[in-house]
């Protein structure tokens, strides 16, 4: 059986070696977890589907679930700490140093070039996700409506998402009753 230290160590390795997170982590997760026999190849799609059904970040959700499977609540805490801790320390150190140099002329020039690139990087997945949205007019109305409400009318996305969840539940229950 996997010890808590082993669980922490494996997830720390996964956390420390994936840059960008999310789907970039899946191949690494598969390598590390299936070779140890902690999960089987058949289980992986189910684990990912479950991780996507819960809110939050994919990598963290996968660690919570796998850790739980291995050693219960303690296992899930060990796995989550493993995923988060290496980057937590790295980011904290960078944040402390960055504040001192943010106004340095060279840093300022470098980031002047980086900022438009970041905006592009955020925009790119939108197109990819929009292509996968499927047919029907409703998804496009929801997507465009959310964009207008959040970007132009300053409505908090949390209200938008909560309202959509309630509407979705209402519509489904209404259809079921009919």
């Amino acid at each position: 059986m996997a010890s808590l230290r082993q669980i922490f160590g494996v997830f720390a390795k996964i956390g420390a070696f994936t840059i960008g997170g999310g789907y970039a982590m899946i191949p690494l997760i598969r390598d590390e977890l299936t070779t140890r026999g902690w999960i089987s190849d058949e289980e992986l799609p189910d684990i990912i589907a479950l991780a996507q059904s819960a809110p939050g970040v994919l990598a963290v959700n996968v660690s919570i679930f796998t850790g739980y499977r291995l050693r219960g609540l303690k296992g899930s805490i060990a796995a989550t700490l493993g995923t988060i801790l290496p980057s937590f320390v790295a980011i904290l150190l960078i944040a402390m140093v960055f504040r001192g140099y943010a106004d340095h002329p060279v840093v300022e020039r470098v980031f002047k070039g980086i900022r438009p690139v970041v905006v592009a990087l955020i925009a790119v997945p939108v197109v990819r996700m929009a292509r996968q949205m499927g047919s029907g007019i409703l998804p496009w109305v929801i997507a465009a409506g959310t964009l207008v409400l959040v970007a132009f009318l300053k409505v908090s996305p949390i209200w938008v998402l909560a309202a959509l969840a309630v509407t979705g539940a209402g519509v489904t229950l209404y259809r079921q009753r009919k």
Binding site: V126, M129, I142, A143, G145, T146, L147, V160, L161, G168
Partner: peptide, 12 residues
């Protein structure tokens, strides 16, 4: 209802 909103959210 939530999935398409995520697309709008990231665009925002």
């Amino acid at each position: 209802w939530i999935r398409p909103a995520v697309v709008g959210l990231i665009a925002a």
